[in-house]
Nucleic acid binder design. Structure first.
Lengths: 187, 187
DNA sequence: ATATAGATTGACTAATCACTCTACAAAATT
DNA sequence: AATTTTGTAGAGTGATTAGTCAATCTATAT
């Protein structure tokens, strides 16, 4: 792992543990095993590091969600694939997931342009629109359905993380929870 | 408004605007129109102020949710009353709502004891249990249903806040969104 | 071999921060 | 009236911070 990655990795850990401002850049550098100045060689400011980390993690999540052949699947199967992949990613990467949550409910969110924010949900929105057009999904605002979809994901993730469950129980819950959200948004 | 309230009010505004650590206590005191030392007369530390603010806001929300006669209502009506009241409170107090969100996804959350955290959902959990016992709500973990309920609330709130809607449209959406969550959790 | 560009370092700085301290004013209590 | 408690102020303090900078190192290209 190169130094830039080490810095991002250390920053993620410390930000989730202590919060953005309670984590000094000097602490990140120490945790990453690099000098103080090196951090500012890769990221002009601390704010730039925070935003870069968010974009970096979002990219990983997006890659993981799409990491399957779903071209020929039905709308429902595609939705389920996205749902299950996103949920599993969140459960396998709780620190990253928590960081995203922390970032989205912080004032740092405003450092992203509205276009950037919208862009990230674009794929799901398009899928929802297709589902509406083919009368498989309820004919209500796609943005609204997307909001419910994401919220549901967050809720299930949070519940699983704070509950000790066997892998089998967890998988059952994931199946059932998709059935619930699909029942809610499908016609 | 007394000085303590002024301090809480100023802190809320600045925390949501700039984040916890990016808001200096001196700034809060200035915004509240009191001296620096006065802040520390009422709150021993900045952390104590943050937690006190959270507890203060949660108390307001709890009061608002219960502010109706619902003793004789059915489980569904009680759930709807809580849902609508909570949602309306969030829409009428976006800053407070955002603060709660920010607090819950920050490391400050860990300053609350697990008992305190659990206590806050207790009323809804009890209602869900009653609903399950009377076979009106699906027989799955009450904590899980509570998670979904809260997440749904957050999702709808976020959508409404980021969308320009007429009051009529908003009320329709609130009605419809309750029907959706109720359809999801009822038998 | 030499030159050039980028990577890395860590001491340094100016600013800022949470919190303290002393002094005094206003109530409340005796 | 005297005394104690509580509220308020704001200058002051030691610690900490983001970011800079000049110096050194590494690697690749010529």
């Amino acid at each position: 792992m190169d130094k830039k990655s080490e810095i991002l990795h250390a920053a993620l850990k410390l930000f989730v543990l202590h919060g953005f401002h309670a984590t000094p850049t000097s602490g990140i550098a120490r945790e990453a095993g690099v000098a103080n100045g090196t951090l500012f060689h890769y990221f002009k400011t601390k704010d730039e590091l925070i935003v870069a980390l968010y974009v970096h993690i979002k990219k990983q999540l997006a890659f993981c969600i799409l990491n399957e052949e779903i071209a020929e699947a039905t709308i429902k199967e595609q939705c389920k694939s996205i749902y299950v992949n996103a949920l599993n990613w969140g459960l396998e990467h709780p620190t990253e997931f928590r960081f995203v949550q922390q970032f989205l409910s912080s004032p740092y969110l405003m450092m992203l342009t509205p276009a950037e924010i919208k862009e990230q949900n674009n794929m799901v929105i398009e899928l929802i629109k297709e589902g509406i057009a083919t009368r498989q999904i309820k004919a209500i605002a796609p943005d609204f359905i997307n909001s419910l979809f994401i919220s549901h994901l967050f809720g299930v993730n949070q519940y699983v993380l704070q509950t000790n469950m066997s892998v089998a129980d967890r998988n059952t819950l994931i199946e059932e929870s998709f059935a619930m959200i699909w029942g809610m948004i499908s016609v």
